[in-house]
Every structure is written in structure tokens, then in C-alpha cells.
Design a binder for these strands. Structure first.
Lengths: 243, 243
DNA sequence: TCAAAAGTGTTGTTTGTACACCCATGC
DNA sequence: GCATGGGTGTACAAACAACACTTTTGA
């Protein structure tokens, strides 16, 4: 907006700090995991929190988020990873020290590297989504919002491939859906649905890979160029899913 | 998030200003309209902009947005109106005066009251969505994002009723869809779809109203309690809708 | 030869789409 | 009566869900 005062003074108000916080998600061994850092100092010293940090004067929240992501994961090339703005949390008092407005992001990655506790954090680790509460600050809520958003977007966007390595099997792709949604899907129908959506995945000619050590080798696929899924791949309603 | 510096100093950085900007949308006479204010001073003096204002130290961005909404529309009770956080715009340089991070909201209302140019704005007015560009700052982009979001949410959320008065006909509800999407819908099928979704609308017993001055009086409905639409009411794909 | 995982086929049901048609009202 | 907008019926096609079956591998 930026209208609102007839004469403005940068220092007229108590200053706001703006941070970018990240819910970095991955799927490994059939479990949804999230990257957390252990806080080294008060408040919430010793508790786990989402990685994040201050937005610098010369960067956008998106740039700050990508920078933090690179620092926390130790990945050299973070440019291809899926990063998506979730929403902004601005309740007064959410940080006891000062007024902090936090722009939250969801990041999705395959095959997570070992995190190295960065400059800030005492320790960084992948933790199972279901076993991390309570987190510091209002991060429980941010994390829940991230999972809701990702789950909902799997229905109508070609998002699941962001959880998969460059080449993947349809079984792996299906496991992403099943893990995030927490429901089992019919394999034949899932397969048909995915292959019937132009641009969702494209086959890697001739390639195949054994998955569980046993069984028929599965054909490999790459992410396609489409971004949306038409028609969508719907979760079964199962009565009253929240908005 | 709020970790990141070992010793923090509120005044260590150039201060950020945080604003709440509003894309207030309505549907009247088959056209999508947006509430705009004319800027009284530089930068962008004389140009139209989205209403908005600074988030005060003791309020959240949501509270600030609702306060601004009440001020700009002059509505006494703004509590029932649909207000939804869109996303946050934080590029450096988006406001030439200082670093402004803007949390954008979409608000939906029926039957708009005449706006009264508030304290800030030289003038406030409802303008047709298609004829307002260019707006000040990056508001063209915010407005486009708002329309995209609302259009997408109409598919799977019980959102259209937010554009309708307390009691409305199915024809009016259909016009909301047609106006926001810019496509014509088959009336019989639309009707069945809406009525088949439990909790989307509920009939007002016995009530009926003439719409175009002619024709059969239409039955009246109220908004139901459901929030999501299962199965969704999909736009026809018509090739490559963007994400 | 067996278990495990990939992949194909088939069938009945549901849902969507396109239309034709009837109803109530103002002019 | 006729134009206008509300409301119902129907028939064809597409999509979905459930599940039986075949294939290819390692042990």
C-alpha cells in the first residue's frame, strides 16, 4: 500500500524486524520429515525451531529464504528446489524480544543431505513430522500450515515431483502422495492418472531400476513441464476435510 | 524466524515498515469491481492505488487490514466479510521512499456501499477490474494475484457466497462464477452441482424474488456452513491454465 | 518355486455435459 | 401471447474405483 501518512518518518514507529522462516519438507522411507534447528539461546533455548533468519536490507523475503535454505542444508545449488511462500505471521508478541513479522515459506526437497548446523544454530537435524512438537515460537502452527498447503497442492499441481530425485519410479511418486496425505492409493489407478496427465512426468527411455531389492524393475521417469493437474488428483473426501 | 543473531539490536538495521494492502473485490451488474483510492501525494500522486496502511505496533496485519477495510468502505460492521491473506510483497525498491514490506489481503463483499474517501485518500471509488491499470507501486501485480487466487478458490471453496447478499438466488450465485471466471456456465448443471453439495447453500423456505423484472420469481438461498466443495466445481480446462 | 513389486485389463458405477423442455411472471 | 428468466428431465460420454490378472526380478 504505502499510502497512509501525510508526512512519514522512518523512525516514527517502533521498528519491525522481518524474518523468513522455512518449513523444509522431505519424504524418506515412507515418512514425512522436516528440517529443524536447535536453539542455542533464550528464548526457547534448547527447543527445536524452524530454520530462518532476518531479511537483509537489500534482499526480498524470497531471496532471504533461499539463502537460509542453502546455509542450513549445505546444498551448493539450491536454485532448482521448490520454494513457495506460505503466509505471513504478524501477531504482536509472537517473539518476546521485539516485534517480528515472519514471512513463512515451504521448501520441498528430495533425498535430503545431512544438514550441518550452520553459523546460527546449535544443531540441525531432519525429524519426523509427527514427533517434533512442541516447537519454539508459533512454529507448530507454521509447520501445520505448511503440511496443509502442500497436501492440498498435491491435488491440483505437479508438485510431488519436487520430493523426488531427478529420475524416479511411479512407485516413489505414489509414496509421496501416500505419505503426505496419510492414505493408501490404488496403484493401477494412480499410474493411469499420472500418465494420462500430459506433462506431469515423462519417461526416461529404456531406463529401469530395482526398488525394494526384489520384484520387477520399475521404469524411470523425469518431471515434466506442466505445472497444473487437469483434472485434479483428488483425495477421497472421507467426510469433512477442513478448509 | 527469529534466530539468527547472537546479540540482537532492534535498531541495528535500517527499519522496515510493514503495511497491509487490500484488494477489495465485488461483483455488480455482471462486472468485477475493485475498490481504489486516488493518491494525494508523491510518489504516484494522482494515480490510483489499492487501499491500505501501516500496521500499528499493537496489531497484527489481519487486524490492520480489517481496520483499513472499515475505514475505506465506511461499513460499520465489517466482521462478517471475507478477508483472506494473499501473500507478502517484499522486493527492495517497491516503494521509493523506504523499505516497505506489504502484506496483501483479498476482501470480498456483496452490494458495495459508496466508499467515502477516508482520512488518507483524496478519493475512493469502485472501478471495473479491467480498466484500472496502471496502478501505483506494484499494485497491478497484487490485484492480478488477488483475482487469480479468488478464481482458483471458487473451484473448491464455498467462497462465492461472500460476493452475495445474505439472501440470494442461484442465478446471482452463478453470475459470480461467470464474472470472476469470465466464462458462461450451463444453468441446469450449475444448479444441480450447487444443490448437491451439502452445506454450500440452504433454502430460505417459501421465499422468492423477481430478478430481472421479468420471468419466474427465483427461490432464495442463504450461505451454508460448509467451507469446501467436494467434489470441486471445475472450470473447463480450455488448454493450459497457468499455475 | 515362491514372494515381492511392476504393470495391464476389465467391469460397474458415478459424474459431467449438452440439450430439450416446462413453469411463472411482466408487458 | 410472447419474451424472459427459473426450474426439471434425459441421454450420451467421460472419468473413477475396485479388483483380477500377468510379468519380471531376487532369494
Amino acid at each position: 500500500m504505502t499510502v497512509g501518512v501525510t508526512a512519514y518518518d522512518k523512525y516514527a514507529y517502533e521498528p519491525f524486524a522481518v524474518t523468513a522462516d522455512l518449513a523444509v519438507l522431505t519424504v524418506t522411507e515412507g515418512a514425512l520429515r522436516v528440517l529443524l534447528v536447535e536453539r542455542g539461546q533464550e528464548p526457547y533455548a534448547g527447543q527445536w525451531a524452524l530454520p530462518g533468519g532476518f531479511v537483509q536490507p537489500d534482499e526480498s523475503a524470497e531471496t532471504a529464504a533461499r539463502r537460509e535454505l542453502a546455509e542450513e542444508t549445505g546444498l551448493s545449488d539450491v536454485s532448482g528446489l521448490h520454494l513457495e511462500q506460505l503466509r505471513t505471521y504478524s501477531e504482536p508478541g509472537r517473539d518476546p524480544r521485539m516485534r517480528v513479522v515472519s514471512v513463512a515459506f515451504a521448501a520441498l526437497l528430495p533425498d535430503p543431505p545431512e544438514p550441518h548446523g550452520g553459523s546460527d544454530a546449535a544443531d540441525a537435524r531432519w525429524m519426523p513430522y509427527d514427533k517434533v512438537r512442541p516447537l519454539a515460537f508459533d512454529h507448530d502452527r507454521i509447520l501445520a500450515d505448511a503440511r496443509d498447503r502442500v497436501g492440498a497442492k498435491l491435488e491440483y499441481a505437479c508438485l510431488a515431483t519436487a520430493f523426488c530425485p531427478p529420475e524416479f519410479t511411479l512407485g516413489e511418486l505414489q509414496q509421496v502422495y501416500e505419505t503426505v496425505w496419510g492414505t493408501a492409493l490404488d496403484r493401477p489407478n494412480f499410474r493411469r492418472k499420472v500418465l494420462a496427465t500430459p506433462g506431469f512426468v515423462e519417461p526416461v527411455p529404456g531406463a529401469a531400476r530395482l526398488t525394494g531389492g526384489r520384484g520387477k524393475p520399475a521404469a524411470l521417469y523425469r518431471a515434466g513441464t506442466a505445472t497444473t493437474l487437469h483434472p485434479p488428483l483428488l483425495r477421497t473426501p472421507r467426510e469433512g476435510r477442513p478448509a
